[in-house]
């Protein structure tokens, strides 16, 4: 039996990966999806909310710093506290950090430049609703495109994150080792994505929507969205 999972893709002024995520969910995954305008406050009708990549509010002040104050984030915070699934990609991850739904902060990449290209990721936690379709320790390929992806976190909260297996994606080399060379932005412990303790809020810098069709060079990212569908099956 096929299940129907309704996704909502939030559109902030300056979001620019909203239509990419929308395309994957509707045309590749075949699930219903709506755009959710940043002025809306109730997102409870969705089974998964995606905060897409881009430059919300121009990334002025600091990436994600203004978006967290938008009306829709009040709804998203409430939704997350009620256990709703929230996936933040790239700028969406930055917004989750700014809004406190995930711990930590982003510094500019250590190379001080924007970086766009493919990286290797190790999937460290396959028990989240977003990673059910991966194998533990599996190395997958996804693209990144950001200027602020240098994840930082203080010692104590880091221990807490580690304890609940919050580190979900790690930048690694082809054989799965988190080396200095395989880290594209200087992120602490090569962290590329983390999940909250409850497991319903995932933030990740790589773009799974950019690698959900083979014609784009790989389809490892589609499994993030398929996992959500499986979670509800």
């Amino acid at each position: 039996m096929t299940v129907t999972v309704r996704f909502g893709v939030v559109v902030f002024p300056g979001s620019n990966c909203d239509s990419d995520v929308y395309h994957v969910i509707r045309d590749v995954l075949g699930q219903p999806v709506d755009y959710v305008w940043h002025e809306e406050t109730d997102v409870s009708k969705y089974q998964c909310i995606v905060l897409p990549g881009g430059f919300s509010y121009g990334d002025y002040l600091r990436a994600g710093a203004l978006a967290r104050f938008s009306p829709v984030m009040r709804g998203v915070e409430e939704y997350a506290h009620d256990g709703g699934l929230v996936l933040g990609i790239c700028n969406g991850f930055q917004i989750l950090l700014e809004s406190g739904l995930l711990p930590g902060a982003m510094l500019p990449n250590d190379c001080l430049e924007f970086r766009c290209g493919w990286v290797n990721l190790r999937v460290d936690n396959v028990d989240t609703p977003f990673t059910l379709e991966y194998h533990r320790g599996e190395v997958v390929r996804m693209p990144i495109a950001h200027h602020e992806g240098n994840y930082v976190l203080e010692k104590d909260p880091l221990e807490a994150v580690k304890k609940h297996c919050g580190i979900t994606f790690t930048y690694v080399d082809e054989s799965g080792r988190p080396t200095r060379d395989s880290n594209p932005n200087g992120a602490l412990l090569n962290i590329a994505g983390i999940v909250n303790e409850r497991g319903n809020v995932l933030g990740m810098m790589p773009h799974p929507e950019r690698c959900s069709e083979e014609v784009l060079g790989g389809a490892d990212g589609l499994r993030v969205f398929r996992s959500v569908v499986r979670y509800y099956s």
Binding site: H23, V24, E113, R115, C116, A145, R210, V215, L216
Partner: peptide
């Protein structure tokens, strides 16, 4: 140079910089 440019957004870039000509799919 071109890894400083986002050449993939819109998910139509089938071949991007570094490959002579850019190939874009039309969804």
């Amino acid at each position: 140079v071109w890894r400083q440019y986002d050449y993939m957004v819109r998910t139509d870039t089938v071949a991007g910089p570094g490959s002579g000509a850019a190939v874009l799919r039309v969804k």
